[in-house]
Each structure stands twice: as C-alpha cells, then as structure tokens.
Design a protein around this nucleic acid. Structure first.
Lengths: 162, 162
DNA sequence: CTATTTTTGTTCGCATAGAAACAATTATGA
DNA sequence: TCATAATTGTTTCTATGCGAACAAAAATAG
C-alpha cells in the first residue's frame, strides 16, 4: 500500500468529518472543535477549566485554542474568568447558555457514525481502533524523532508548544 | 469504542500529518496539498490538467483548489493556460521549475512513514487499509445520506460541489 | 534581592478548507 | 434560434490550524 494512498484516504475521511462539522455549525451555530471544547468544560469540575487544559485536551496550538474560545465567548457560550493566584492564567467557564446548547446537541456528533459503528462486529471495531492507534503512534514518532528509549507519554506534553 | 474517541484519534493523526506538512513547507517551500497537486500534474498528459481535474483529484472545494493553484502560480511552479474550445476552463501546466522541485522532494512525503509501514507485517498493513476504507465509506454515507441502492461511486463525483 | 529564564495566552500572518455569490461561458430545450 | 439551465473558476467571508513575536507574570538561579 502506497503512502500517498494512505494520506489521500485520511484526507477523505477528514473532509467528510469537516463537512459534517460545517453542517452542524450551520444548523446549530457550533463546529466540532467548539463542541469538543464545550464537552470538555461540561465534564470539568465546576464546569471550568484553564485554557491550557483545554488546549491540551484538544491537542492544539495555543493560538488556535485562543481563537476557538474567542468565538465561543462571542456567542456567549463560555466566559473568561481571571484565575486567583496566577494572573497569566485564564479560567474558561461554561455559561448556562453553553450548557443548554450542549443538552440539545451532544448526540449530533454521534448519532450517524455511532449507529454505523454499532452495526459492526467487535473484531472490526477493534481493527479500526488498533489501526488508528497504530497510525497515531507512527506519525507521532515520525514527527517527534523520538528516541526509542523514551516512552511516548513523556513526549506528549512536551510536543505541545505555544 | 466511543465515537468521540475515534474523532479525537483522527484529529491527532491529522495534526501530525499537518505538522509534517508545515515542516516540509518551511524547508522546501511547498505544503502537502501543493505537493499532491504537483504530483498529479507530473503524472498527467503533457504535465497538464484542467483545474476541475485537479480539484476532483484533491477532493476539494473549487475555491480551495483555486487558492492552492494561486500560491503555486505565485511560486512559479505552475502556469495557467487558456483551454482551446472552452473559455470557462483553465488548464494548469507544471513548469520546469515545478518539475525540478518535484524531482528533489517526491520522497520527502514518504520516507519516514514508508519506512515504518515497511516494518509492519502484511496483515497489519491490510488492517490499516481496511479500517481506513471502512471509515471512509461510513463517513461518506453519513454525509451523503445515500440511498443503499446506489453505488458509492455514483455519488463520488456528485458530492463534489463548487 | 535581583537578573534571568520560563510560562501563559494574545495577536498577527499565512495556508487550508468550505459556503455563498458571482460573471462568463457552454449546453440544453422548445 | 433564442431563452434558460448548467458549468467553470474566481472572489469574499468564516473557521481552523500553525509558527513567530510579544507582553505580563511567575519561577528559578546566583
């Protein structure tokens, strides 16, 4: 199997996901990255998290996270609060408007793909999981030029830069 | 396996690919989508193709393709030629500068991932391929809300819009 | 205590990606 | 033949994504 073919397949998969994101955004006003951020807050203590935590969860560059949070703030779905004791840090809080929206739409992201996944047998599902994890690790190693002696987890945080 | 987990894994994979793209662009001045376009031209008759063909190959919206080609043109790697007999259509030609660049860098995209892939046994490779194809089809069907009576291939072109 | 280094998030610029609107051109139907 | 529909690619706008630069704040070292 040619590497370019893998790349093109992945691009196709991503395109489909992003088209779905566009569709959800048109209907509900939030995109998939925004939904993932709102979900993360909803599962956090006091429905709040530091911006750095969100960035790490989303596995994004901080300027990107900043942009996503800006847009959520503009929509009134999150609020930016100062963090006591550290003036550099911003706490992001889910607003009740954000909470209500997430009560309406959490399944949207899932319902079509989940249904299809549920129709697959367990071994196929496991193949998908294994393959994705394998690709993930292959590409992480490639990107980081990791020494084989160091566990991946040790690099995961270090690989996130501003 | 949760759908969000699949989504997050795919996002991670894509992030790694895009980081690699950024790295290649910094070193050689072209990104992965640009390289894919140049590759396509290099494999085309007379090193030329209509913009619509490139768009379909890249599986992109036409405004995106237009942007990519604009940037390649600015770099002198492609040229825009009128097409005889149809004034709406633009023919994109690989320049010799573009050709020379592609002689230097075609393996860049491949060398790290290919090496890792070659170390995998055939059944694992096949699992990766099968899983990607399965995801691809699942998401295509989701997106298109296809009738089960129509073959996917019939939809592939129709799904591309401007 | 002070200078230096590190951390945090913002801004700016570029690229990719899609949707919508559009003009010019070609194809189709009556 | 002519009016209408379809096609092609461009432009504009929005969102995501990254890197670089930056300022303010905190941590560290001497």
């Amino acid at each position: 199997m040619d590497t370019t073919e893998i790349l093109i397949k992945i691009r196709k998969i991503v395109r489909s996901i992003n088209l779905e994101s566009k569709k959800i955004q048109k209907e509900h006003g939030v995109s998939i990255p925004q939904i993932l951020c709102l979900q993360f807050l909803r599962n956090s203590t006091n429905y709040q998290a530091g911006q750095g935590e969100i960035r790490k969860f989303l596995n994004l560059n901080s300027s990107t996270a900043s942009g996503i949070i800006n847009r959520l703030e503009t929509k009134g779905l999150v609020a930016r609060l100062p963090k006591r004791g550290d003036k550099r840090t911003v706490t992001i809080a889910l607003t009740s408007k954000g909470d209500q929206l997430m009560q309406e739409i959490p399944s949207l992201l899932h319902e079509q793909l989940t249904e299809k996944l549920e129709n697959l047998d367990d071994s196929t599902l496991e193949n998908i999981q294994t393959s994705l994890e394998l690709l993930e690790k292959l590409l992480e190693l490639d990107h980081l030029e990791a020494s084989p002696l160091i566990a991946n987890d040790d690099f995961t945080d270090a690989s996130l830069n501003n």
